[in-house]
Design a protein around this nucleic acid. Sequence first.
DNA 1: TCTAGCTATAGGTAAAAACTAGACCACTAG
DNA 2: CTAGTGGTCTAGTTTTTACCTATAGCTAGA
Lengths: 289, 289
Amino acid sequence: MDIRSLRYFIAVYEERSLSAAAKRCFVAQPSISTTIAQLEDDLGTKLFLRHSKGVSPTDSGSQLYPHACKMVSDLSAMRSLFTDTLTPLALSISLTPFLSGALISQVIKTMLDEVSGLTLKLVDESESADLRFTCQRYATDEDVFYPLWEDDYVIAMPLDHWLADFASLSIKQIDKQPFISRTPCDILESWNYLMQKQELTTDVRAQVKTEEYALDLVAAGLGISLIPEHSARGRSDLCLRPLNDVKLKRVVGLAHKKERSFPAHLINTILTAKQQLLVNNPPSDTRLT
Amino acid sequence: MDIRSLRYFIAVYEERSLSAAAKRCFVAQPSISTTIAQLEDDLGTKLFLRHSKGVSPTDSGSQLYPHACKMVSDLSAMRSLFTDTLTPLALSISLTPFLSGALISQVIKTMLDEVSGLTLKLVDESESADLRFTCQRYATDEDVFYPLWEDDYVIAMPLDHWLADFASLSIKQIDKQPFISRTPCDILESWNYLMQKQELTTDVRAQVKTEEYALDLVAAGLGISLIPEHSARGRSDLCLRPLNDVKLKRVVGLAHKKERSFPAHLINTILTAKQQLLVNNPPSDTRLT
DNA sequence: TCTAGCTATAGGTAAAAACTAGACCACTAG
DNA sequence: CTAGTGGTCTAGTTTTTACCTATAGCTAGA
């Protein structure tokens, strides 16, 4: 029985759900599941009843909850015994849709680990937030933008497509191909401009809204499409090829209003997080399936 | 900062030594060393001053100590929220003969006080028991051994004996002396080995089975004898002298089979009992009657 | 009956904590 | 002065733990 278990327990208790608790703790759902099971085993009593809509606390669970809260808060009080003038920092962060969840959670995890006293709240893009995960293109003059990683855009096609024989493609080879168009797309304007400039066209077979749907249609053989490389990570039913004569990419990072100021160590942590991303997610040349 | 770190911290604080804390926590010394270093790093303050004889707590360390104790005890209280009431614990304890009854009863008292629901039954050494009061030498590889105290062996002689003029004795001075031999004796083998190695002999005048009888014969002037210091406690008709060139002692404690597991609370209590023994029975340099 | 959403389990990987061995330092005894 | 002792720290290795992905199994609602 350690503090980590109690933190997870509190999250589950308050969310009434293992999956929701997992999201809140920025870990995968099985981690929560096994940890709670261990805790129950350790205490010799069931803490939650599992059902198809989530979990509900047993009497034991409800009894444990206040103790667990006290324990966790005592511990963080102890931490701040010697760190003077620790100002608790509560920030809201918004997400631009269709960014890589895996990378974002790595960054958030680093920030929570490194900046003591920091609590984050994820809000919808429509609300105003202290920090925004977004593309550099969307950062305005009134923003400060910290780049974190780059998403390279590649052409996705079925495994048996004739273009798959090329290690990389020229934009000219895309001319008149059946194409799955996707909106919104961060680089759609650049793409259209490039195509028009070379008087190329595509044969748009479908218009979809999400990357997953676009990829499904590509896998089904309906056409080819242009997508950020990371979003096809883990799909073996597709073939990805980079473009060799134009480089399409978006720079993703954190933005905030210039007038908003943050503690220096928070900014340093963002820069640290960028380094860690490079280490953990080596600058993958587009995989040749 | 987790509970494990705090446990180690408490052990170090109370033992004033990383190595001693390591023994108490049943881990290797580097584990303690690195964990304390991490904790100091985490809290941003040094907790101990290292010097050649061990460590001493800084102000920060002393400040942290009560908080850490509370945290750890809260946690074990939480553990027993659900388990303790359900399991009354009935254990049998056996005694190796000729240990100090006074000390043993102190330990047993502590255990009964601290562990709620515990009942003890003292059985003969020949029977198998859950826990055994015994010497470290008699604990096997299949045992876990918790040391409780050390018995120093001293030379007992009549008050008017000529060796009483020395504050401490060399083993060479024992050569050819009238001697009361006692079997069984926990350190008889060591003693014989030491004597033979230096080609010394004793003039055995009597062979007895108990410490009391041996002491009576010594007081009567029949010879000198080798006994654990505690067993002559309270006798004013004898003179005790330590040996200064060899250190003969036995480590007495509680042993149990490795495969047998006990509630952590019980184990903690045994460790507490050891501390209390040290407080109540100060590490007496052999009394110079 | 099919699908969607949730939890549990299995298997593999990466990080944390443990151990061993040995360096270094201060003190003590000869 | 030198050897030995008792203590902490460092480096390298092994073991344990926590985590992730993938997937199975269950239940409720369409």
